[in-house]
Amino acid sequence: MNQKIIKHPEFLILSSENDRNLKSIADWLAYFKVNFFCINTHNDVVSIYNYNMQTEEMILLIDDKKDETIINLNKLKTVFIRNGELKFNVNKIPDTLLKQNSVKDYFYSYIQNLDEFLAYFFQKKYNIIGLWGLALINKLIVLEESKKCGFKIPHTYLKTNFNNLNSNENYISKTLAIPLEMETKTQKFLNYTARIENTSSSEEFMTSLIQKEIKKLFEIRVFVFLKKIYAMAIFSQMNEESAVDCRVYNTENPYLDEPYTIPDSLKTKIFQLMKSLKLNTGSFDFIYTEDDEYCFLEVNPIGQFGYLGAVCGIDLNKVIAQEIIEYEGH
């Protein structure tokens, strides 16, 4: 077996190799000569190599299938949780045993306990940026909490039919969970927000998130990292394809994006909502309505921000690297 590499990082990043921002952030940290280590949540396997509960000294073992690295946490200051959940090392179990529910339940509980303990330990000992694990956040709870912070939101319903909807209004349907992605060898499918074409249908369906369509002038994407805010206006109404969902992009006839300055009153509400949701970073989506109001749609704790930075003329990867270095918690 190869000799184990020993590291004593001051900064730890948890992110997947599929995160398009990870390499640039790591490059900037290296440029600033920061002592950091990245755990690739897509590939690396983690073990709690040694932990003394009396002294609270912890050492992790990271196996990337090529090398094994011992991570001594005695110098660690800040953990930036960007994307993905940790994979833990477990002994190989014969398939015949894995078919037994009791064995599957045991290993599920085993992994959950390790994961929950690491989350608890990190949050107790170090400065944390981001949400642990997959950073999943309940859209329905977010909408309820946003109302408490004074945000205007679309008229929203959870329904299994179209009964009692106003036939003179337009409605949209959007996912209430994570986006559904499916791939074949030649195509990729993703569910988008879409206008409901026939609300007179008597069809019954599983509980779905339905909202009254807002008449908008443009959309706004706001990226928040700790106390810094950057925003851009998205003129998705320029194209019919993107009018309901700006992700439906026409490369031959693209809509415009422009830097945007949001008012202080909106910033205050954003930080109130972040405090309520225990977030310190995230991407927020708004509609600016024909009535000159800001309408809150949702927040993504791990939303992409590179393009927004380009629109605003800022390298947000550099900004994030600098903020990670300077962050001292609350």
Rank of each mutant, 00 (worst) to 15 (best):
K188I: 12
L180N: 08
T184G: 05
N166G: 01
K174V: 03
L217H: 05
E197Q: 15
E219Y: 06
S167G: 00
S201E: 11
S201K: 14
T184A: 01
Y171M: 10
E213C: 04
T193Q: 10
E219S: 03
E219M: 06
N164P: 01
S173R: 05
N168I: 03
N198P: 10
S200M: 12
E169P: 00
S173E: 04
Y171D: 06
I196V: 08
S167C: 03
Y171C: 09
A194H: 11
I210S: 02
S201Y: 10
N164G: 02
E213I: 02
K185E: 09
K215C: 02
F189Q: 08
I196Q: 05
S202V: 07
N166T: 05
F205I: 12
I172H: 05
L190E: 06
I178T: 15
N170A: 07
N164H: 14
A177Q: 07
S167H: 12
E183T: 08
L209W: 07
K212F: 00
I220D: 02
T193R: 06
K212S: 03
E213G: 00
K216H: 07
K212C: 00
S167L: 14
T175G: 03
I210M: 06
P179T: 13
Q187D: 11
K185L: 04
N164W: 08
I214A: 01
L209R: 06
S201G: 10
